[in-house]
Design a binder for these strands. Structure first.
Lengths: 204, 204
DNA sequence: CCGGCTTGCTGAGCAACGCTCAACAAGCTA
DNA sequence: TAGCTTGTTGAGCGTTGCTCAGCAAGCCGG
């Protein structure tokens, strides 16, 4: 009123791409403290220094926004896990496992929050991570030089669930050494789908 | 207006216990179609034929309501899985496994919706099912006549995650026969925590 | 310099929903 | 009849997701 008609924070104008990226980034930063679906448009807009309306200019609705955030988180994980091209097959799986545990160790709550959000509630969000997992199965089976029939796919997916759960517990209460954990996980996987499966008696 | 001042549906007065049970029951019926946290008070009250206000008389807030619904679902599962007293130990685990698969086969979407809701999002809801799982671990380890040290607990919990995931996939795409599935799950468990563990090299 | 176009952006406002509160009413007891 | 307990409701408030008409900043052709 007393001052100029310009707002205190002069309106910051960005390109569409920049703004979208910023909003997703803010979502990522809020992930550890807030379940994805409970992010409020108000809070995100406030942190971005924009109006609520603008967020709806970039995302049709709230769900589209937080699925975008979830996808961004899944992509970060995916890129971190993927073996460098040229890695010999036998090292690929151990490498991915090692990096996965490292990832969980580094981000702890943040990652657990992501998994929770991805596992539960909204089907749209679940589908995002389910997609990433499916791609990881392909990579894993290829690295193990095994065919990916339906049964093996299911077993590797279930082994992911096992791994996620176990590593999640382990970072909070390390009941074994890190190398032992890695060996265990690799042995379980080999036992499940390896070419001379110790467990997979149910061949077809 | 034209008729008496009484409402069309004459007010149905119930005891506190009955009303609470009815509301929880309605929540259970809505579970398969709606993620727990997205249940609207309006919808539940409408189905119960009461005002929104009354629901808040029985549950302090929305979360308290849907955790009650979740707990009810978890209790149903728990009661269905528990071995009958007097069952010989070696039959207890196979029996629980058999009943678990039967449960998932029977309720399919309903159960998957429950697991999703329990796994994701709201920590309060997660805790409800986490509690049930912890009790199941105790039962399982006792049935296997194994000590329940920290490592074994973690492994059995992770094996639950494995089982839930695999059975969830299997009911949608049966890649093996039912007995083969049960054998596989039992073998994996034995391999993980048995007294001569095929996989548990990481002893402490 | 001006009109017009594109496009990033906002404010007012609506509808749905969670939640509160004062008060009514049905049944019991005295 | 009076009074107590307790199941129940309607009005209403604040927040939140979402819409819409329109402003404003930069860029263009004339």
């Amino acid at each position: 009123m007393t001052a100029s008609s310009r707002p205190a924070h002069p309106r910051e104008r960005r390109t569409a791409g920049d703004r979208r990226a910023q909003l997703v980034q803010i979502g990522l930063e809020l992930l550890p403290t807030t379940p994805v679906q409970e992010l409020t448009i108000d809070e995100v807009a406030r942190r971005a220094g924009i109006s609520r309306s603008l967020l709806f200019h970039y995302f049709a609705n709230k769900r589209e926004y937080y699925t975008a955030v979830t996808r961004a988180a899944a992509d970060l994980l995916w890129e971190h896990l993927l073996p460098a091209p040229g890695t010999p097959p036998e090292e690929q799986v151990t490498g991915m496992l090692d990096r996965y545990v490292g990832w969980v160790e580094t981000f702890r709550e943040s990652h657990l929050a992501f998994v929770r959000g991805a596992a539960g509630g909204d089907p749209w969000v679940s589908e995002v991570y389910a997609d990433t997992r499916r791609r990881l199965v392909e990579v894993a089976l290829a690295a193990l030089e095994l065919p990916d029939d339906a049964l093996r796919r299911q077993l590797v997916l279930a082994w992911f669930a096992f791994t996620e759960d176990l590593v999640g517990q382990w970072v909070h209460e390390p009941t074994t050494t890190r190398p032992e954990l890695l060996d265990l996980l690799r042995d379980v996987l080999r036992g499940l789908v390896g070419d001379r499966p110790a467990l997979l008696r149910a061949g077809r």
